[in-house]
Design a protein around this nucleic acid. Structure first.
Length: 105
RNA sequence: CCGACGGGGCGAUCGGUCGCCCCGGUGACGCUUGCGUCGCCGGGGAGGAAAGUCCGGACUCCGCAGGGCGGGACGCUCCCGGAACCGUUUCGGCGGGACCGGGGGGCCCCUUUGCCAGAUCGAAGGGGACGGAAAGUGCCACAGAAAACAUACCGCCCGCCUUCGCGCCCGGGUUGGGCGCGGCAGGCCCCGGAAAACGGGGACGUGUCGCGUCAGAGCGGUGCGCCGAAGACGGGCAAGGGUGAAAAGGUGGUGUAAGAGACCACCGGACGGCGCCGCAAGGCGCGUCGCACGGCAAACCCCGUCCGGAGCAAGACCAAAUAGGGAACUGGAGGCAGCCCGCCUCAUUUCCGCGGCGCGCAAGCGCGGCGGGAGCAGUUCCGGGUAGGUCGCGUCAGAUGAAUGACCGACCUCCGCUUUGCGCGGAGGGACAGAAUCCGGCUUAUGACCUCCGUCGGUCAA
RNA sequence: GGGCGAUUAGCUCAGCUGGCUAGAGCACUACCUUGACAUGGUAGGGGUCACAGGUUCAAGUCCUGUAUCGCCCA
């Protein structure tokens, strides 16, 4: 991951590196204690990122590993907004599976 | 009835789909043959505070025969209930128990109010970390005379002394004054006279002088004074003054030089005296005391009860590499020979013991040999221990970076539109907040709803 | 997870066994010194003692709770 690519979005920062598993891309989530002081906020941030990743896992390339770092603004966002942010980031990082274009608006 | 605030309870509905963590079962695949990945079935999956870490306990290690010092925590009394846990047990129970809740009682403080007033008391409401201030030590700033074995600043009173004033008495009686008498002079009136000259008389009391008498200030007095003032000294008193958070009972009287519980009445108070009531904390009565002995112990401290220390990052087990420790065994290198025994050459730190050879008169020195120990080197083994791992943490959550989410529907709440209903649209299902060994307590944070309680406001009725 | 400590002026710190006006240095302001500046001198301003409650006649100090910051232990 130290050599991986990094891109920042509104609600998250994404790292990516070659890897992957038979089931598809693997995920790691990070919520820093400096950013989210309360444990309930850290859990909320990680759950939002995890859900957004799960719902869009098939849209991503299968041969990469991904780490998502939550940013402070994510607490104000809903699930759909986090999903859109994640897909936009994946597109910029060239992480989308071949032949599939995100439906960005 | 409504609203606000405080306190308490509760912190939450049903169904479906897709995912996550753990356990049990099962199947497929992969290979380092016991794990990994994926799937299916069944079960379980955050809180009242999981939080703060303020306490108590279980548990673990250290220590351990027992106790003390030091340090710390708690503190009215009685009853009932709950309680993690501990001890004991005949497994029914019994005893203890940090702490929590409820009720009754006592004591103290504050506010309001009622007593003529005051000390103080009663009532109502509220509050109390509520053992001891008569074991000891310490502190009580400023102000005030005095702040804790009370004191005497101002003040009140008495005595004495000094000075002064006032009054009285006495002495002295200047100038002057009043009264009386007298002399002289002057004016006025009357008579004589021509006359305003002169003479006589009269009244007046104008001036002056003398005598007598009366009063008499200033001044003086070792004088007197139920007079007064000031000051010094000696003594009595503690009522009044004012300061302060706090000043040694209150009111009225008697009394006194002045006063004071000095004495008296009533009220209040104290008692480590007695009696009675109450399980007790305490209360009441009697008696005694004219009534000195304040506050602070969330100051040191004393009394009673309790506590050994550290903490799951405790601790237990498995255990690589490297370095170091211990034990046992072996003793280097080369050549000859090669089945074994063996033989030759070179090298070999130090100590002890034994005997041998050589030199030397001797002490001793040198040479090589045997045995033992240490060191060194090698091999093997052992233990400690680091990285790492497993357990601790199994009990209906069980993680070594930590799992509970998303969507749909029902239902509910609120807002808007609509004449109501029906219906439509929108928002929301809410706050505080996420287990990390477990349990109990405390504290703090909290939306909606509920209603038990309290305070305040509004409206309605009586 | 567990065990501890601190908070006083803009900054760094004192403040004893509760009491007198909460002080010191740097910084800031004004004036003096200089042609001007630095330095120096004089004077001055600036404090919810982190917050809340309690004990006490009286709290920065004592007690309790809260908040924030920091340290240590595998």
């Amino acid at each position: 991951m130290r050599e991986g690519r990094r891109l920042a979005g509104r609600y998250a920062v994404i790292w990516s590196a070659p890897g992957g598993a038979p089931g598809g891309a693997r995920l790691g989530v990070v919520a820093a204690k400096r950013v989210f002081r309360r444990a309930v906020d850290r859990n909320r941030a990680k759950r939002l990122l995890r859900e957004a990743f799960r719902l869009n896992r098939n849209a991503l390339r299968r041969d990469v590993d991904v780490v998502l770092l939550a940013r402070a603004a994510i607490l104000e966002a809903g699930r759909a907004a986090v999903e859109r942010d994640l897909l936009a980031l994946a597109a910029r990082a060239r992480l989308l599976a071949d032949g599939k274009e995100p439906e960005l608006r």
